[in-house]
Amino acid sequence: MALNTPQITPTKKITVRAIGEELPRGDYQRCPQCDMLFSLPEINSHQSAYCPRCQAKIRDGRDWSLTRLAAMAFTMLLLMPFAWGEPLLHIWLLGIRIDANVMQGIWQMTKQGDAITGSMVFFCVIGAPLILVTSIAYLWFGNRLGMNLRPVLLMLERLKEWVMLDIYLVGIGVASIKVQDYAHIQAGVGLFSFVALVILTTVTLSHLNVEELWERFYPQRPATRRDEKLRVCLGCHFTGYPDQRGRCPRCHIPLRLRRRHSLQKCWAALLASIVLLLPANLLPISIIYLNGGRQEDTILSGIMSLASSNIAVAGIVFIASILVPFTKVIVMFTLLLSIHFKCQQGLRTRILLLRMVTWIGRWSMLDLFVISLTMSLINRDQILAFTMGPAAFYFGAAVILTILAVEWLDSRLLWDAHESGNARFDD
């Protein structure tokens, strides 16, 4: 018995066209964080690309023209004298008006014999932002004059995390709450300039795509075929072959399989920071003279006294001054041990922890910024005066060393310790 099946006739004509040209192939790229070699397709503007294995951002879609970056830099340069030299806060102490600005706080630190601690604050609040705007201006002028731009481009990517104007702005709020127990506070004209400078700096850093600047100024022929001998440069993120001198053909720094002496430098910085954190938390970090009496505060006791007036601000200072430094030390110690013992479990967790400490590390400088600003506000000789204690130097040095330890660690070593050939990683 035959089955009668109805015929289905399409209502619209289906047209099949042959592909007349070869589909576009992607360029081969190595991930600078996990060293995976993959094919990167062509990316349009405002599109980002991520590593298929570790999800690290390979290409950032946010990109401004150099002219727009230069305009932002010149605007920031105009704001800087007002943000640093004009009063941020006014207080009335014992019937006398006192003005506080950024430069005055750094000068008070240096004047009291601790120039190293003052230079830490100076670099993060004044030096690094000033280098940022002058570097962008150098790129703008240098591109037109045919100057060598490689050193500036190499420095810009590392400079971003040292620009800490946003953290200093939080420190202004913390210092205001600490001082309000002794005097009446009012915002100064410099505060508005400083807030504007923070906003412009944040926007500029978020749109400063150094890798795209490398592509514009020093374009290189990408690798179009897969080759395990391809290496990625950690300076400019170019994937290719080393030249005859073993250097990256684009930025001219040595092109090595792994960062040289990464573990040794990381261990040295980490152990030194552990040693410095002990006096930083045991010795007094601030000293207040009130009517001839002397009151010393460690980091913890200062947080407890701050909690009596504002528990939320005390929580912020606790996280930045105690929780973050010790968390960074514990995480980095764990990561280094996992590399030495070739741990194969929990790779995803370790990668996330490394990215976390990379982002939060700079916030530990908050305590030094609060001390710097408070020193310029309260300084009335023996009637009422505020000065920093010996722990300030140890704390600042420990924070900087932990930042350097994270920067010096080559994250690809975590993958080397893991089993080879993993296309995915999980716990």
Score class of each variant (00 low, 15 high):
residue 95 G to D: 01
residue 426 D to W: 10
residue 394 Y to S: 03
residue 106 I to W: 01
residue 213 L to Y: 06
residue 156 L to E: 08
residue 396 G to Q: 02
residue 81 P to H: 09
residue 145 L to D: 01
residue 119 S to N: 02
residue 47 Q to G: 04
residue 417 A to D: 08
residue 315 G to I: 14
residue 314 A to E: 01
residue 117 T to R: 02
residue 258 R to S: 08
residue 218 Y to G: 09
residue 13 K to C: 05
residue 217 F to I: 14
residue 410 D to N: 00
residue 316 I to V: 14
residue 77 L to T: 11
residue 156 L to C: 10
residue 1 M to F: 00
residue 164 M to T: 05
residue 230 L to E: 13
residue 102 V to I: 06
residue 71 A to F: 06
residue 414 L to Q: 05
residue 364 S to I: 00
residue 119 S to R: 01
residue 335 L to T: 09
residue 23 L to A: 07
residue 49 A to S: 06
residue 14 I to F: 06
residue 152 V to G: 03
residue 144 R to P: 01
residue 354 L to N: 10
residue 396 G to N: 03
residue 418 H to D: 11
residue 347 L to D: 10
residue 305 S to G: 12
residue 398 A to R: 02
residue 427 D to P: 06
residue 184 H to R: 04
residue 391 A to V: 02
residue 391 A to R: 00
residue 166 D to N: 15
residue 133 V to Y: 04
residue 162 W to Q: 02
residue 146 G to P: 03
residue 200 L to A: 09
residue 414 L to F: 12
residue 411 S to N: 11
residue 390 P to H: 11
residue 219 P to M: 10
residue 350 R to T: 09
residue 282 L to F: 15
residue 269 A to W: 04
residue 96 I to Y: 04
residue 25 R to V: 08
residue 186 Q to L: 10
residue 275 V to R: 00
residue 211 E to C: 14
residue 222 P to H: 14
residue 322 I to S: 10
residue 305 S to H: 12
residue 13 K to L: 09
residue 371 I to F: 13
residue 256 R to V: 13
residue 2 A to Q: 07
residue 62 R to T: 02
residue 353 L to A: 13
residue 158 R to V: 15
residue 424 R to C: 07
residue 302 G to K: 00
residue 139 L to F: 02
residue 393 F to D: 04
residue 170 V to D: 02
residue 235 G to N: 06
residue 52 P to Q: 04
residue 228 E to D: 13
residue 409 L to M: 09
residue 369 F to T: 04
residue 112 Q to M: 13
residue 267 W to N: 14
residue 88 L to I: 04
residue 380 R to Y: 04
residue 424 R to E: 09
residue 156 L to T: 08
residue 201 T to I: 11
residue 163 V to L: 15
residue 285 I to A: 01
residue 39 S to I: 13
residue 322 I to H: 02
residue 15 T to N: 15
residue 242 P to G: 10
residue 70 A to Y: 12
residue 8 I to A: 09
residue 12 K to P: 05
residue 252 H to Q: 07
residue 410 D to K: 00
residue 46 H to G: 05
residue 325 P to N: 03
residue 109 M to N: 05
residue 55 Q to K: 08
residue 59 R to W: 07
residue 101 N to L: 01
residue 63 D to L: 12
residue 5 T to H: 08
residue 392 A to Q: 03
residue 305 S to C: 05
residue 106 I to M: 07
residue 131 I to D: 01
residue 51 C to S: 01
residue 300 L to Y: 15
residue 247 R to Q: 14
residue 17 R to T: 06
residue 45 S to M: 07
residue 236 C to K: 00
residue 357 V to E: 08
residue 382 Q to F: 12
residue 140 W to S: 11
residue 66 L to H: 10
residue 181 D to P: 00
residue 344 Q to E: 09
residue 57 K to I: 08
residue 49 A to I: 06
residue 39 S to A: 08
residue 181 D to L: 01
residue 83 A to S: 06
residue 115 A to K: 01
residue 347 L to H: 14
residue 168 Y to C: 09
residue 321 S to Y: 15
residue 232 V to I: 11
residue 72 M to Q: 07
residue 57 K to N: 04
residue 415 W to N: 08
residue 402 T to A: 01
residue 381 D to C: 02
residue 12 K to M: 05
residue 137 A to Y: 15
residue 38 F to Y: 13
residue 340 H to V: 10
residue 294 R to C: 04
residue 383 I to K: 02
residue 193 S to E: 02
residue 74 F to P: 06
residue 342 K to G: 10
residue 357 V to D: 05
residue 198 V to E: 08
residue 311 I to G: 15
residue 18 A to S: 07
residue 40 L to I: 07
residue 399 V to S: 12
residue 70 A to D: 04
residue 248 C to Y: 00
residue 167 I to Q: 03
residue 105 G to S: 02
residue 6 P to R: 07
residue 143 N to Y: 15
residue 321 S to E: 00
residue 197 L to D: 03
residue 4 N to I: 03
residue 401 L to Y: 05
residue 326 F to M: 06
residue 26 G to K: 09
residue 86 E to R: 11
residue 184 H to S: 05
residue 56 A to T: 08
residue 36 M to I: 12
residue 112 Q to R: 06
residue 47 Q to N: 05
residue 75 T to N: 13
residue 404 L to I: 14
residue 186 Q to Y: 04
residue 120 M to I: 06
residue 321 S to D: 00
residue 156 L to R: 04
residue 98 I to C: 02
residue 351 I to T: 10
residue 351 I to D: 12
residue 151 P to R: 15
residue 282 L to T: 13
residue 107 W to C: 11
residue 360 I to W: 11
residue 150 R to V: 04
residue 72 M to Y: 03
residue 396 G to A: 06
residue 422 N to Y: 11
residue 12 K to S: 06
residue 277 L to G: 03
residue 214 W to P: 01
residue 87 P to L: 06
residue 370 V to L: 02
residue 391 A to S: 11
residue 58 I to R: 07
residue 234 L to H: 14
residue 272 A to F: 04
residue 214 W to Y: 11
residue 100 A to E: 05
residue 314 A to D: 00
residue 186 Q to A: 11
residue 21 E to P: 08
residue 19 I to G: 09
residue 70 A to K: 11
residue 17 R to F: 05
residue 280 A to K: 04
residue 396 G to W: 02
residue 86 E to H: 04
residue 323 L to G: 13
residue 426 D to K: 11
residue 309 S to N: 11
residue 2 A to P: 15
residue 53 R to E: 06
residue 18 A to T: 07
residue 275 V to T: 13
residue 86 E to Y: 01
residue 406 V to T: 06
residue 216 R to W: 11
residue 318 F to S: 12
residue 246 G to I: 10
residue 192 F to N: 05
residue 35 D to T: 03
residue 263 L to E: 13
residue 29 Q to P: 05
residue 283 L to M: 11
residue 417 A to F: 12
residue 154 L to N: 02
residue 141 F to L: 13
